[in-house]
Design a protein around this nucleic acid. Structure first.
Lengths: 239, 239
DNA sequence: ACGGATCCAATGGTGGATCCCG
DNA sequence: CGGGATCCACCATTGGATCCGT
């Protein structure tokens, strides 16, 4: 199956919100309005320039679609759609329909682990309600010509929530037992911990296994592609 | 007396350090090299553009002279001359020889007062060793034509230290007893608390009289002009 | 294929202070 | 006059993610 499965009915309307959607249905209406269009078409109607590629503009698609859908929140303590409590995640799809990349969720707080229960975790809150927005992510297709798919709302079902919790608790435990520098991206079934920084020289305050202060490269939680693929599939099954 | 009293011997040398001074004597040598020159002359030799006036460039003189003398520290936890433990303060002088403005020292930590003894206070540490650098501050004289005077090192003498401590302790006490919003710039003999922010809408975390969390306009400690005038005079008396 | 490394834009906080009415 | 208000540059951090060598 191709990424085109996530299209909706084409529309000729120029799309220009820039104010937050007042309801979930209004948000989904906006998603319908942008789906089936290319990034070039949407950028033109918003008077925005599309970069040649993403090498030096890695977050461009996410930021552009956020602004187009009227995400507020800016740099504040999320979610993207403040009033609705909804987080937006773009999902680049390869020609096969598989997510092309893992999905960054949030940073790992290196300054205090232990104590925190899953229920209060940042990761759980970020994933409580997500608007997934599939976008064509085929390298051979110029960025300007890539199609935007139809977004869908998702909250973890009981099985997904259990997987996330299990991985999160295991990873947090490992931070304590083997130390943050020894937790690799190989751990975790659906969730992993990887570097999240401008480069490998960046340092933040952290704690060693012994509870001592130290400096370490910042890390983030990422969802593995197989997990986001399952999310995509579960959405299609419901339609 | 005029601000010219603070000049030193003129020099025709082009002044180009940009590396931190290795010793106090090297720092004072650099001060001598820039004193008696105008901001325009110094800026030209450093290939820097002088703003027309300071209305939209309030900190320009301070920043420019810092870089000229080789202050490191950047945005880190001060002092300006890291190795020497010396803080640089430019002092704009009116034609009368009086400091034209109060002197900003440091921000008031609104999130935790009480507990802190004077000996460990940020204010005391900032003022432990200061390089005062008089600069012509006459509004009628174009910025580019204003002369730089001769800098001098200062540490509070016992009387000055006692005044600072008394004001600081009184002001900190008032923050607790009447609350931060009720402490005005009228309190304090040589030291005062005033707003220090981009504008009056800026807010930071603070504590009410009752110990509750609240939001307040950021404040800073400032030295009153009469006090910095006394510092100037005490320096002249020693020469 | 994927684990480790990296990239940009926007923002908020800090340090440098002076402005400007009443 | 001086107390309250304000202004810029710079840097570190955060949020958006994708790149790329083994």
């Amino acid at each position: 199956m191709s990424w085109l499965d996530y299209h909706a009915i084409m529309s000729d309307q120029i799309f220009v919100p820039r104010v937050p959607p007042a309801s979930e249905s209004e948000l989904m209406e906006r998603c319908r309005a942008i789906s089936g269009k290319t990034l070039g078409q949407l950028a033109a109607s918003a008077d925005v320039v599309v970069p040649k590629d993403l090498r030096r503009h890695k977050g461009w698609v996410g930021g552009f679609l956020e602004s187009l859908l009227g995400a507020d929140a800016g740099t504040s303590a999320r979610p993207d759609f403040t009033q609705l409590g909804i987080e937006l995640k773009t999902l680049p799809l390869a020609a096969t329909g598989m997510p092309k990349e893992s999905t960054y969720v949030c940073t790992v707080d290196m300054s205090e682990y232990g104590e925190m229960p899953w229920e209060q975790s940042w990761l759980r809150r970020k994933l409580a309600k997500v608007l997934w927005l599939p976008v064509e992510g085929v390298s051979a297709v110029p960025l300007i010509d890539r199609y935007v798919g139809m977004g869908f709302l998702w909250s973890p079902d009981s099985q997904q929530a259990a997987l996330l919790r299990q991985d999160w608790e295991e990873l947090m435990e490992m931070l304590l037992t083997v130390g943050p520098e020894s937790v690799t991206a190989r751990q975790g079934e659906v969730l992993q911990i990887r570097p999240k920084a401008a480069n490998s020289r960046m340092q933040v305050a952290g704690l060693t296994m012994d509870g001592e202060q130290t400096q370490i490269n910042p890390r983030g939680f990422y969802l593995r592609p197989a997990f986001t693929k399952a999310i995509l599939d579960s959405n299609k099954a419901c339609r």
